[in-house]
Structure formats: C-alpha cells, structure tokens
Design a protein around this nucleic acid. Structure first.
Length: 621
RNA sequence: GCCCCGGUAGCUCAGCGGGUAGAGCGGCGGCCUUGUAAGCCGCAGGUCGCGGGUUCAAAGCCCGCCCGGGGCUCCA
C-alpha cells in the first residue's frame, strides 16, 4: 500500500462520474475541507487487512504532531501499477476509515470508484508531504510512476556517510573516533541528525547591532538587511578583496542581470530542478524571477561565446549583489541565512574531467587563501565533500588529494545515484557558537548544464563538445563571512579574551584621544599623518573623560588607541594601546605606521566615510 | 509554511492577579579640562509592534496581522 500524506490548507474534490464497476454512492457536488490531513491511498495487490493497524498508528502520530483533527481518506490509484482488485481495495479503505473514526477523528471519505476533480493546497512545512509504503508492495519504485520528483528525490538521495582522512582512510561515521575533532563531530551531527534545542538568538546578531555593522529593516522583506556605515565598509572591503583574489587567479569579471524570464526554456528546467522558492516579479507582459546565483547570467553569456579547446580552462566571475533566495521564514537567522545576499560566483569551463579535477585543486587552494585572508583559518572550518558512488569509485585518488590539501578529516556523503547536476561538491563549513554549520566556500563539478544551456567548445579533432563546468564561491556569501567573523569573536569573548576583527577590516584602525582641549589640534595633525599612509584614524574630541573615551574605544574593538596629551607632545613618543596584546606599547609615529602596515599588508584599503571627529558623528540607533 | 517564545523611551530591560508608564545606558544643556575600561548635576524623550474585541477602565485579558528569535531531519 502506498500513501501520499499531505497536510493541506484545504482540499476540494468533486465526484464527476463513475469509473469502475465497484463504486460507492456519492453526490456530484464540491466537497471542501480546510486544514486537514489528506491521505491519498493506493491499495496494492499484495495488501491484506492486517497492514491497516500499522498505517493508522503512523497517521495518528502525525495527527498528533501536526495538531489536525480532520482526515480526508481519498482513494488514489495512481501511486502504483500493481493495484488490488476493486472489491478488496474498497474493503480495506473502509476498514481504514472505521479505525480513524474509532479514534475520534473527523473523517471525510472521498468516494471509491469515481473520477473526481481534485484541488489541493499543501502547507509549506517539511512534514507536510510524506510518501509512505506498507506491506508486501515494499519500496517505492523509482520508475515512471507519476509521483512528483520532489518525493522521489528522497529515495534517490539515499546517502552513506563517512569520514575521509588525509592518510587515506574511509571510516563510516558511526565508527569514527571524533576525539580531538569536536567541530567535525558537530558538523556530522548537524548534517545527519540536525535537531538541537537552542533558545537564544545567535550571538552575532547582537554584535552586528552593537558594532553598527548591520541591522534588520522592517520595511523590507525579512532576510534583507540594511548595512550601516561601518558594516558597509567591512562588506565592501571583503567584496574588493575576494574579487582581487579571483582576478589574480584568472577570473574574467562580468556583470549579468539580476532578473530573468521565468518561462525562458533553458531556465525553466533548471528552476524545476531546484525546489527553492524565488522572488517573482510581475510586469504587465511577463513574469520574472530574481536570480539565486550568477549561474544563469554566466551560462547564457558562455553560450554566446566562441570557445576553442585552446581557451580552456577559463573562468567567468561575478560578485552578485544580490543573489536572492526566498528561504522559508523560519530558517532566516541574523546574517547566517538571508534572502538577499552578496556572493562571489566563479565558473570554470573545462575541457574534460581531467582538466576539471586540476582546476578544482587550484580553486580549493584559492578558497582556503581567501578565507584565511578574511580571518577565517583552517581551524575554524570543517570540510564536507559529497559525491556519487560512481564518481568516487573511479576518482578515489583525486578525492583524497582534496582532503590532503585541506589537511584534516572530512565528512563525506556518498549518493547512490546522481540527482543534482553535479557529481562532486565540497564545502567549507563554519561551526558557530550554537554548534550550527554554515557553508562558506564551495565548489561543484557540473556535468549537466553545458548541455542544458547549449554551451560548447570545439576540440582538437574539430568536434563540438560540452565543457564540464565548475561552480565555485571562494568565500561563500560575504554576509556569511561577516557572520563567521562575529561568531568567532564572540567565542573569544567567552574564553575571556578580547574580541576583534582583522585590522584591515576594522572600521577605525587607530583612535586618537586628546587629553585636554588644548591637545586637539595636535591630535588632528597626528591623524592626518597616519591618514597619508592609508590608515583609518579618528579623533575622539567629545567632552568626555579620558577614561570614558578609552572605554568606548575598547567596546568598539578598535585595534590601536592612543591617548595624546602634553607628555606626548614633548617626548614625541606615542603610548599605543594594542588590543591584540592587551597592553600599551610605546612607539614612534614611524614605528606605528610600519606596525599597522605590516598587519594590513596586501589587503585593500578604503576610507571610513563617517566624520573623523567623533563629536560630529551621528550614531545609529 | 507550521509550532513555541518575544516586541514597553534611541538601546538593554522592569512593570503584566486590569486602575494616570519606570530604571540604567544613550541624547541634549551646564559644570569639570581630564592621563589608559563608565566624572558630577539637570532636562527632554513613550498612540507599551499594528488593528479589532471584552471592560466603567487594557501595556496587561481575547482574536487577527506585522516584525524578531528558537524549533520542525529545510538548505542550489
């Protein structure tokens, strides 16, 4: 027996005409039931009455969990090709209904043996759709039965989980000794078990507000943030940094539209392959969706390029501001998961699998460098790698090369069959304070979209071929990098250490605090000296006490604080409060400049756009 | 989406067996001219998320909605 169980806002059915010699009496009228559990029941050849108990018990659990009181039992033949004879099917259906009635449920029965018109509106939560199978009918077949792809996905996606180690071991997760690999264990649990009760809001949310980085914007859709001056600077620096790194690696930077025709033939299929919901925009003539990555734009561009094997591999790169994904509202959380986010998206077009594998190694190296530059080290991330069984068996050595490159044991998920467009994918996951995993960098080997979009190159033998495409985001969403930095800082706070951002990302790098009003002009001159060397400096000229200003500077996580008074003017030496070391170090101006420059090195610089004098600076609410 | 929790001054929060709205921080004004994590005094500031309902009376109780958080094996 197969049951497709749907939690519905409403279901409407209307008996149209009798279709079978065995049928129940019914009126030809529309029946509408709201907020109910709809059971599309298909009785199969081998089914006996004794499976009814099992079924009723399962359903009762859901009734309880979903807090519904109405059940609609709907005979639905289309879930199987091995149907029970009608008499028997009807009698089993009746038994099911009786059982539910005896459990005090409000049971509605669609008539057996009729051709019926059916309208349903399924609720959008994870438990709303369930396909279950009972008795000798056994497993759900993945053949041509008209069960939706989304439901079949579960079966195809049957996963086997392992830990792969740099030394070449492949250990089923159950038997891996996680001692010394706590974060990997958290990632594993997060990916496989996933349930955990955490009540507080993620710590980075409070920090992003307190540090005036980002905030919610109630007037927009949830998951669309506003970035305040300091946050905009941080984000902008990260954007520039990632872009520079990708270009250095050979990325060809382009820009593509953010919205696309919902019914464009190439895109339509791709969209259907991914159930995530999009933002839709209706104009008078057409419907558009907002891009959820740069894939479309770049593929449509690559399709119009004349490509020879001599050009391969080449990269198209775009920093998407924004990519849009209408994530379910319950999944949004601070900067961890947004509906509008900024993502570097780099696609490499490769001649064949061999070339794709070589490229992928380069891109893993790039990703690790980019994260490290942003302040997220290898210790902060855990790798997950996912592949089809076939791919792994044929490319085992390559998979382990990636793992050796990463240098720590890695969580591996192996799929029986390929459902997605890729045959291998890795991600670097940040494990946050709440032990939740968020993917940052990622790369995939796509063997399907070149054909889908008609992207071809001419090979040495003069034949047009489809390239293999790698999809890489070297840093992951920029917002998520900020989230990771803030969460990392919070973890430092918990250990009693001083939190801070990397110096090159700190909105104010050096703060000068004049002791008395008469020192202000000198402080401003000092600021100007530092600014000439591309260092972000401000001066706290407010009428507060020195102690108070130091306290404020510390709570803004400013890396270098200088108190400047008569003594400094006389001696020409600066007492620099160095946050990283938690102490005051005396330096000359030149030494300070050298010190800061050494920290910032090859990272991009942008000026802070807020007024340099704190007394002139509006604070954000 | 669904379930649970929350929304009170710019911020953090108290008040919630219904009876004229509070603190700290911040802001503004004044005094102090300051030496390495909060100087002192004063003042202003609130359709208690929004809309309905119950009541002589609602921040509080009831219903709906919006926003945030957590959870729901959701995550390209």
């Amino acid at each position: 027996m197969k049951i497709l169980q749907l939690h519905v806002d409403f279901v409407e059915y209307e008996p149209i005409q009798v279709e079978s010699s065995v049928y129940e009496e019914a009126d030809r009228k529309v029946n509408r039931i709201e907020d109910a559990l709809l059971l599309l029941v298909c009785v199969e050849k081998e089914d006996e009455e004794n499976i009814v108990d099992e079924l009723v018990k399962d359903v009762a659990q859901f009734v309880d969990k979903l807090k519904v009181s109405k059940l609609v039992v709907y005979p639905y033949a289309h879930l199987s090709t091995e149907l029970a004879p009608p008499q028997k099917a009807l009698s089993i259906l009746k038994k099911i209904r009786e059982e539910f009635v005896s459990r005090n449920l409000e049971v509605y029965s669609a008539p057996f043996g009729w051709n019926k018109r059916l309208v349903v509106s399924v609720k959008g939560h994870p438990l709303a759709e369930q396909l279950r199978s009972y008795g000798a009918g056994g497993r759900i077949r993945t053949t041509s039965e008209p069960v939706s792809t989304a439901l079949l996905m579960e079966e195809k996606l049957k996963s086997y989980w392992f830990i792969l180690t740099p030394s070449g071991e492949m250990v089923p997760v159950e038997s891996f000794d996680f001692r010394g690999y706590e974060n990997l264990e958290y990632l594993t649990r997060y990916e496989i078990a996933k349930s955990r009760a955490v009540i507080e809001q993620p710590p980075h949310v409070q920090l992003m507000k307190k540090l005036e980085i980002a905030d919610y914007e109630n007037a927009s859709d949830p998951g669309n943030m506003r970035w305040l001056a300091k946050g905009r600077l941080i984000k902008s620096l990260l954007e520039q940094y990632v872009t520079e790194k990708v270009i250095e690696y050979g990325g060809i930077e382009v820009e593509t539209p953010i919205m696309y025709d919902l019914h464009h033939p190439s895109l339509e299929k791709y969209l259907h392959r991914f159930p995530a919901r999009q933002y839709l925009i209706k104009t008078e003539e057409k419907e558009y969706f907002l891009r959820f990555a740069a894939c479309f734009g770049q593929f449509l561009m690559a399709k119009d390029m004349v490509i020879s094997y001599k050009h391969l591999p080449f990269w198209l790169y775009e920093l998407t501001r924004y990519s849009f994904r209408r994530e379910k509202s319950g999944e949004l959380a601070g900067l961890r998961r947004l509906r509008a986010f900024t993502m570097p998206d780099a696609h490499a077009f490769c001649r064949d699998l061999q070339q794709a594998k070589e490229e992928m190694k380069r891109r893993l190296k790039l990703s690790l460098e980019v994260l490290e530059g942003a302040g997220i080290t290898r210790e902060d991330v855990e790798m997950a790698i996912r592949f089809t069984k076939d791919f792994f068996e044929e490319n085992r050595e390559f998979v382990f090369e990636l793992i050796r490159q990463f240098g720590k044991p890695v969580l591996a998920e192996m799929w029986e069959e390929r459902f997605f467009y890729f045959i291998l994918k890795w991600e670097l996951n940040f494990i946050d304070t709440q032990k939740k995993a968020a993917a940052l960098s990622t790369d995939q080997i796509d063997v399907e979209n070149a054909r889908q979009y008609g992207i071809t190159y001419v090979d040495e033998d003069g034949v047009e071929k489809y390239p293999i495409i790698l999809h890489c985001s070297p840093s992951g969403a920029i917002e998520r990098v900020v989230y990771a930095l803030l969460e990392k800082a919070y973890m430092k706070m918990q250990k009693g250490e001083k939190p801070m951002l990397p110096v090159w990302l700190s909105p104010t790098q050096v703060r000068i605090i004049p002791v008395a009003e008469r020192n202000l002009q000198d402080a401003i001159r000092l600021m100007e000296e530092l600014e000439k060397n591309k260092i972000r400096v401000d001066v706290d000229d407010r009428g507060e006490s020195v102690d108070k200003k130091i306290r404020d500077g510390e709570s803004e996580w400013i890396p270098y604080i200088i108190v400047y008074g008569d003594k400094e003017k006389e001696r020409g030496i600066l007492p620099v409060r160095v946050r990283e070391q938690g102490k005051i170090i005396e330096m000359t101006l030149e030494e300070l400049i050298e010190h800061v420059k050494e920290r910032i090195k090859d990272k991009p610089f942008k000026p802070l756009t807020l007024p340099k004098l704190l007394s002139r600076r509006p604070s954000f609410k």
